[in-house]
C-alpha cells in the first residue's frame, strides 16, 4: 500500500507516540513483544498513512494482545482466526492498511488453515508472526515450532513432534513475501515491516521472539552479543550473502544443491564466489534453502528472503466486479427482480 500511501495522502506527520494507546502494556518485563511493538509503531509513523487507515487484527495469545496497545482501529479476534478476519476486513475495505498479528500457535496450529489460505489468495496484508516456539498465554506448552525433544508442561519427557519451519509452510502456500527478524533488532524489524507493507499481497514477517518466562533463550545464538554475528545472515537484495564477526563467511551453492558455508580467503574462495541475494526471483527454490538454514550448522537468514510481485486478491476482486458491471444490464435490485422469465397476472 505504500504507493497509494505516498501518493494519495498529504503528509500526515505522525510519530511513533501517536500510535500508542492509553492502555497499559501488560507483557512480562523483558518479553520480546515489547521490542516488536516499538518497531511497529516506528514503522507506521514512517509509512505516512493517516492513522484511521490502519487496522490491526490479532488472534489469541500473549502476542495477540497487540491491538490494545495501538491507537488505531483494532480487532482482537479468536484463537487462530485472525488471518480469516483480516481477509474479510481487507476485502470489505481495500483502502485499509492491515497488520495481522499472530503467535506461532495461533497462526500455525489452530489457525494453520487460514494462514496458508490467506497466503495462497495473496490478500494484501502484513502478517507479523511472533515465533517464540512456545504457547505463552496458556503458560508453557509446546507449539508447532518447538524444537524436537523440548521439555514443556505438555511434553515432560520431551516433544516427539517434528517442528514446522514456518517459511516452509508459507512457501508451500506460494508465499510472495517472506522476511525474518529478531525481536531485539528494532531497526531491522522496522525496515522489514515497511518493506512488507509496501509489498502488495500477503507479506509474512516472522519475528524470532523471546518468551522470558517459558522458553527463555530459544534464539540465544542469534541474540547473544558474542555469537550473533556468526549465526545470523542479514540478507539484502542484490548483495552477497556474507556474514560473520569478521565479515569473512559466506554462502555458496554446492554441487548437491545444498548451501555451503565457506570462509573467504580459505581454499581459494574469494568474495566473487559468494552468492548474491535475489529476493525477486520467482523460483522459490533459493528462498526455501535460505529460510531453512538453522544454527549452529548455518547462520539463520534474516531480512527479506523473498519479495516477488503479483496481483493481490482484492485487486482482482475489485477488477472482476468492474468488468462484470460494465457488461451486465442488471444495475439494481429491481432490474434483477424483473429479469428472466416473468409473467403478468391481470
Amino acid at each position: 500500500m505504500t504507493d497509494t500511501i505516498l501518493k494519495s495522502h498529504s503528509p500526515v506527520n505522525l510519530t511513533p507516540k501517536d500510535f500508542k494507546s492509553d492502555q497499559e502494556v501488560r507483557w512480562c518485563p523483558g518479553c520480546g513483544d515489547h521490542g516488536v511493538l516499538n518497531s511497529v509503531q516506528k514503522a507506521m509513523a514512517a509509512m505516512n498513512i493517516p492513522k484511521e487507515k490502519f487496522a490491526v487484527i490479532s488472534g489469541i495469545g500473549c502476542s495477540s494482545r497487540f491491538p490494545y496497545y495501538m491507537d488505531t482501529y483494532g480487532f482482537h479476534t479468536i484463537h487462530g482466526r485472525a488471518a480469516a478476519v483480516a481477509s474479510g476486513v481487507k476485502s470489505a475495505n481495500p483502502d485499509l492498511e492491515i497488520i495481522q498479528v499472530s503467535g506461532d500457535g495461533d497462526a500455525l496450529a489452530i489457525g494453520g488453515n487460514h494462514f496458508i489460505h490467506a497466503i495462497r489468495r495473496n490478500i494484501d496484508m502484513t502478517i507479523l508472526l511472533f515465533n517464540n516456539e512456545i504457547y505463552g498465554l496458556t503458560k508453557g506448552q509446546y507449539s508447532p515450532t518447538s524444537k524436537q525433544g523440548m521439555v514443556t508442561k505438555t511434553s515432560p519427557f520431551g516433544t516427539i513432534e517434528q517442528p514446522f519451519q514456518p517459511a516452509e509452510l508459507a512457501l508451500g502456500a506460494q508465499s510472495k513475501f517472506y522476511a525474518r527478524s529478531i525481536d531485539t533488532n528494532i531497526k531491522l524489524t522496522t525496515e522489514l515491516i515497511l518493506a512488507g507493507a509496501k509489498h502488495k499481497g500477503t507479506s509474512i514477517i516472522e519475528v524470532l521472539q523471546n518468551c522470558v518466562i517459558y522458553n527463555d533463550g530459544a534464539h540465544t545464538l542469534i541474540t547473544d552479543k558474542e555469537t550473533k554475528d556468526d549465526f545470523q545472515l542479514i540478507l539484502h537484495h542484490g548483495e552477497r550473502m556474507i556474514f560473520g564477526k569478521n565479515r569473512n563467511k559466506g554462502l555458496v551453492l554446492g554441487g548437491n544443491g545444498k548451501l555451503i558455508v565457506v570462509t573467504i580467503g580459505e581454499f581459494g574462495i574469494t568474495e566473487q564466489d559468494i552468492l548474491v541475494h535475489d529476493a525477486h526471483n520467482p523460483d522459490p527454490h533459493m528462498a526455501w534453502l535460505l529460510s531453512n538454514m538453522s544454527a549452529p550448522e548455518y547462520p539463520v537468514a534474516l531480512g527479506v528472503i523473498r519479495d516477488v510481485a503479483a496481483l493481490s486478491y482484492e485487486e482482482k476482486m475489485v477488477q472482476q466486479i468492474k468488468d462484470v458491471q460494465a457488461v451486465s444490464s442488471i444495475k439494481c435490485m429491481d432490474d434483477l427482480l424483473n429479469s428472466g422469465d416473468t409473467w403478468e397476472v391481470k
Binding site: 479468536i78 480469516a84 483480516a86 474479510g88 476486513v89 476485502s91
Partner: peptide
Amino acid sequence: AEDEIAGICTSIGASFAG
C-alpha cells in the same frame, strides 16, 4: 472460504470494516 470457520470469520471482518 477454506472452511465454515473462515466463512463466518471473513464475514465478521467485513462487518467490522463496514
